[in-house]
Design a protein around this nucleic acid. Sequence first.
DNA 1: ATAAGACTGAGAACCGTTGTCAACTTGGTC
DNA 2: GACCAAGTTGACAACGGTTCTCAGTCTTAT
Lengths: 140, 140
Amino acid sequence: MQRMTRQRLAVSETLAEIPEFVSAQQLHDELTARGDAVGLATVYRTLQALASAGEVDVLRLSDGELAYRRCARREHHHHLVCRACGTTVEIDGLTVEAWASLVGDSHGFTRIEHTVELFGLCPECSAEDAADPETVGEAR
Amino acid sequence: MQRMTRQRLAVSETLAEIPEFVSAQQLHDELTARGDAVGLATVYRTLQALASAGEVDVLRLSDGELAYRRCARREHHHHLVCRACGTTVEIDGLTVEAWASLVGDSHGFTRIEHTVELFGLCPECSAEDAADPETVGEAR
DNA sequence: ATAAGACTGAGAACCGTTGTCAACTTGGTC
DNA sequence: GACCAAGTTGACAACGGTTCTCAGTCTTAT
């Protein structure tokens, strides 16, 4: 039986308040900063649970780290993520969806799955970038 | 100055003979098995160098591990990879390319990059799968 | 042949993530 | 409200892929 605990609530609520994709460790830090500390292992476990329940989306950053985000839409969709500030736009992918299954079928493959993520610089960061390319961090 | 060594040759040649995406460790094992042993660190370094020189493609498997493959085409392209046996088909992505920049532009993002990979079961593995779903490994 | 310095490899270090397990909660029951 | 079975937690160890270190080795220009 699934129980409601302070920790699960804290993770879930805090995640709901962060609009960007965050890693488990970042979330753990954030929780600690808010004085609502939760063990790191618990953060990992909770995020996993939320992810497999389809309540949050998971993304693998270019360095291999996993990042989580509570998205507005629960249906399958993709993301346009700003490399500099993490701003995320949810986008549907009807075009790629169709393309993916078409390509899969034409090669006789079944059970097609796909990973499609877009990264770039959001309008604000693009402006900074134009002003001084050096100052625009690309940590994500 | 870049030097030619037995190790670099071994890594490069062996990789050229393996049609599937392989991890650094798998390649290291393969080299050892062929009696052409190369230190693991060197395998990692060489693969990195080849990748940043654009001579091999890199893919992040679902478990986060990096896999390398010497592709036929050097231009940008995508892959349709069999989850069960690793068989890989190179596919161009004109459709997604166009879609990606369209989506990026429409949200005011610049310097768009994208990761697009397709996974599925190749014809042979699909057959096995149909015969007995349990026996089809999905390690990759 | 020689020397400068690029390269190698064994092992340590790193880092994100998962496993362990005793102590602690939660929630149904009486 | 008290009780208890079992789900949950968290400090810490362990893991696995990857990178770093550095003394010894090998390439290559001269």
